[in-house]
């Protein structure tokens, strides 16, 4: 007795689901994760990969079966059945993708909100000192002080670093210590906030291991806040075409534990500011 088609379809569906789940969970296509939210992005990617593999394998299998099983035999000049549609089937394959897509949208919105992507940037522009307000009366919303976008956890206690992009380098300024370097050092496990500005054209600040990217736009400051959680050196890559040396516009971010980070800060802090901790040490 031949196996009924419905049983075969069910078995194929189960097999397909298992294979795509296995691929999603076990095939790692991403580089190491080095920031707190990188793992959530990777989890989203695994879901997308599972769904994608399932869909692609399913459609490819149908295509191959059709090409093999329904190929025209030599001498056969008849037509196929005159099937013009099937309303329940069409409703099914409209509704199921729509539901999956909406659920994915909610899921990724949730991740993005937790990362800080839906933050309100107003707290950055609030309360300039009164005299400054007076001085800039003619230009109340100075675009140079408004934060135009980015990812911001709005925790308020993040360690600030000012990033300036120019053709073809990133420059990092530590405002609390008042020094500038060409290599970004970040403390392990401590929230940081990069304030990004460009001097010339649009660049993009990208660290693949952090899964974070933000355009650096002249005239429109942006922010990127996150917590690095894995020690090591990672590449900072410019991801927006910025001129002939765009491919060479790279820098390095060093994530180190708080002791090495403090030492590095002190080593680099200009002497005038550095005297205070030094004198306390000798006293």
């Amino acid at each position: 007795m031949p196996i009924p088609a419905s049983v075969l379809t069910l078995a194929a569906g189960i097999l397909l689901a298992l294979v795509s789940l296995w691929v999603g969970q076990n095939i790692n296509l991403m580089p190491v994760a080095a920031a707190d939210d990188a793992a959530t992005v990777d989890a989203l990617f695994k879901v997308l990969l599972s769904i994608g593999v399932g869909l692609l394998l399913g459609i490819t299998a149908m295509l191959v079966v059709a090409l093999v099983h329904f190929r025209r035999r030599p001498g056969d000049h008849l037509d196929g059945p005159a099937v013009e549609g099937n309303l329940p089937l069409e409703i099914f394959w409209t509704a199921v993708p729509a539901i999956v897509i909406l659920m994915l949208g909610v899921y990724s919105y949730d991740i993005y909100a937790r990362m800080g992507g839906m933050a309100d940037f107003n707290h950055h522009t609030s309360m300039p000192p009164p005299e400054v307000e007076q001085a800039s009366l003619g230009n109340p919303a100075d675009p140079e002080t408004v934060i135009w976008g980015g990812i911001d956890r709005a925790e308020g206690m993040a360690f600030p670093v000012e990033v300036t992009a120019m053709q073809f380098a990133f420059i990092f300024h530590y405002p609390q210590q008042n020094f500038t370097t060409g290599e970004l050092h970040l403390p392990l496990g401590q929230p940081v906030e990069l304030q990004l500005k460009s001097n010339d054209v649009i660049h993009a600040f990208w660290v693949p291991e952090f899964r974070l990217k933000q355009d650096v736009i002249p005239g429109q400051p942006t922010v990127l806040s996150f917590t690095a959680n894995r020690q090591g050196d990672y590449d900072i890559i410019c991801a927006e075409l910025c001129g002939p040396y765009h491919g060479g516009m790279r820098s390095k971010v060093v994530v180190e534990d708080s002791r090495s980070f403090e030492e590095w800060l002190i080593r680099n802090t200009p002497a005038t500011v550095a005297t205070a901790p030094d004198s306390s040490q000798t006293a």
């Binding site: 997308l48 990724s108 993005y112 993009a204 899964r211 990217k213 933000q214 927006e240």
Partner: peptide
């Protein structure tokens, strides 16, 4: 996949 902002932020450009 690219429509999902958190993923797009990583692979955009």
């Amino acid at each position: 996949a690219l429509a999902q902002v958190p993923f797009d932020v990583h692979v955009h450009d």
